[in-house]
Simulated assay, not measured.
Amino acid sequence: MSYIQRVLQPSEQVRHISSIHWIVYWPGAGVALLAGVAFWLSRSEFMPNLWRYAGYALALVAAVLLIQQWLHSWVTEIAVTNRRVIYKKGLIQRETNEMNMDKVESVQIDQSILGRMLDYGNVTILGTGEGFETLRTIGKPIELRNSITGNDA
């Protein structure tokens, strides 16, 4: 059972569930591609041992990056209910942030050109007297904003 399902109050309904965008895997995938090139170059006669060890090192870095981003995506939950916005991250050291819907003043979206093309961006929820942590690299940020503001268009 997810954290969101455990903290729902009676008659509270989930409107929207959001997640981290898959673009966060690109750095790890890029390093993995470089590892593949290094392994390919190790078959040449020009310093094969150097390229092989570089390939091992790059493969290790790629694995660390990919596992780190997978864990981050796995332990992050974002939901909008009819009463509040809920954001949870962390597995052992859990950090949660919630804001009642009647306290939400505005929702800001920051998207780069690539973010517009691939439909991801950063979402900041501003409330009365307080701000919400910026949600980074969120998939479909416009849908998240619309579910918070009540605009289903």
Rank of each mutant, 00 (worst) to 15 (best):
25 Y>W: 11
26 W>Q: 14
26 W>L: 15
27 P>V: 07
28 G>L: 13
29 A>D: 06
29 A>I: 13
31 V>D: 00
31 V>C: 12
31 V>L: 12
32 A>E: 09
32 A>W: 02
32 A>M: 13
32 A>P: 01
32 A>R: 01
33 L>W: 12
33 L>P: 02
34 L>T: 06
34 L>E: 06
34 L>G: 09
34 L>F: 15
34 L>V: 04
35 A>Y: 03
35 A>V: 02
36 G>R: 01
36 G>D: 09
36 G>E: 01
37 V>G: 14
38 A>R: 00
41 L>H: 05
42 S>R: 00
43 R>I: 01
44 S>I: 00
44 S>A: 11
44 S>L: 03
45 E>H: 03
46 F>E: 11
46 F>D: 05
46 F>H: 09
46 F>W: 06
47 M>P: 00
47 M>C: 05
48 P>T: 00
48 P>H: 05
50 L>G: 11
51 W>L: 04
51 W>Y: 13
51 W>M: 09
52 R>M: 10
53 Y>A: 09
54 A>R: 00
55 G>T: 03
55 G>S: 08
55 G>R: 03
56 Y>L: 09
57 A>R: 05
57 A>K: 03
57 A>C: 10
57 A>S: 13
57 A>Y: 04
57 A>P: 07
58 L>I: 04
61 V>R: 05
61 V>A: 15
63 A>Q: 13
63 A>R: 12
63 A>K: 10
64 V>C: 11
66 L>C: 15
66 L>S: 13
67 I>L: 15
67 I>P: 15
68 Q>K: 13
68 Q>W: 10
